[in-house]
């Protein structure tokens, strides 16, 4: 698939996996059902048998599977990560997506031929940082942190000896990923080590008069008029008081969507576009992957593509942004 833009799609379940294949994914990323991946939510992810079967279905269609093992093992608990590496390789994964220095070193040593991708969780944001992971561990592709402008993505893609993959659609972290401890400050569980941000067990909705307050642990994250849909209390999307005013201080509840920038991303030299959303259902995967398949095919044929309104409906808060790709976001 070299020279072509690879569409990398999420699958939290075997059903979503098949939906992504059907909708035209070039590659699908997924994880095992434990804390070794950054979407460790109840009811999500793949057993060993499901992973082997899924890889078989993808390979039969000439598509690729990337296994995300992109959390940071806690000291003394490396074994599940090593098992995940071994099992991903033996299932036939085309790449493993890693973030932790220790897991990367184990992978490079135990599975020298295996293709390694650097997770967004490693937050490698410069040619030097990316070069470090390439030289020390042989990383072949880097998922760029969601902090760079489009111009920076282009400059970086020209300068590094590896492929670059960028986020194109979905929920957006506003903090440098793999380096955020907001969730663990409130709940004791972190996306870095437990694979969950704002874990569901700590989420509560409280009715107070005409309002519903969404809370994470003992922290009120937002409030909504009763009867209206209440958003999930992700800390960085909440409303807080600072400098005498209540606002979405960190980020509005919006989704990233760069479908209209696909020709620019191709020109920037990125190798792959990534759709976020392993926690989302089959309908989301079908709709979003289908729209991006059409848009990429159109861009490659030099045709103009008009994205459908259906895509906007999948966005968080039904609003979308190009996020950090536009310098003014900062």
């Amino acid at each position: 698939m070299s020279g072509r833009l690879t569409l990398v799609c999420p699958a939290g379940t075997p059903a979503a996996f098949d939906a992504a294949l059907e909708a035209g994914a070039d590659a699908i990323y997924c994880g095992f059902r434990d804390e070794t991946n950054a979407r460790n939510f109840p009811g999500l992810n793949f057993s060993r048998a499901e992973m082997r079967a899924a890889v078989g279905r993808a390979h039969a269609l000439g598509r690729h599977v990337y296994v995300a093992i992109n959390t940071f093992p806690r000291a003394g608990r490396l074994a599940p990560w090593i098992a995940a590496l071994d099992d991903a390789v033996s299932a036939g994964a085309d790449a493993v997506i890693l973030a932790d220095l220790g897991v990367l070193s184990v992978a490079a040593r135990r599975h020298p031929g295996q293709r390694l991708h650097l997770s967004v969780q490693a937050a490698a944001s410069t040619p030097e940082a990316i070069g470090f992971y390439h030289e020390v561990f042989g990383v072949r592709r880097v998922v760029l942190p969601r902090v760079l402008t489009l111009a920076e993505v282009a400059a970086l893609s020209r300068e590094v000896p590896v492929e670059t993959e960028v986020f194109a659609f979905g929920g957006m972290c506003v903090m440098a990923e793999g380096r955020c401890q907001l969730s663990s400050y409130v709940t004791g569980q972190s996306p870095n080590t437990h694979g969950v941000c704002s874990p569901p067990d700590d989420v509560h909705y409280e009715r107070r008069g005409g309002e519903v307050r969404s809370r994470l642990g003992d922290v009120t994250v937002d409030s909504f008029p009763a009867g209206r849909p209440a958003g999930y209390p992700t800390l960085c999307k909440g409303r807080f008081n600072a400098n005498g005013r209540l606002s979405h201080l960190f980020e509005d509840p919006v989704s990233l969507n760069v479908i209209e920038q696909i020709p620019d991303l191709v020109a920037a030299g990125v190798a792959a576009l990534k759709i976020e959303g392993r926690q989302r259902g089959k309908a989301y995967v079908t709709r979003v992957v289908g729209e991006f398949r059409k848009a990429i095919d159109a861009a490659e044929a030099g045709r103009h593509n008009r994205p459908s309104a259906a895509l906007a409906a999948q966005a968080e808060g039904r609003r979308s942004t190009v996020g950090a790709y536009d310098r003014r976001w900062r």
Partner: peptide, 11 residues
Amino acid sequence: GVYNEAALAVL
């Protein structure tokens, strides 16, 4: 981020 022995050894 240094969370485990293997990462410490890399550093």
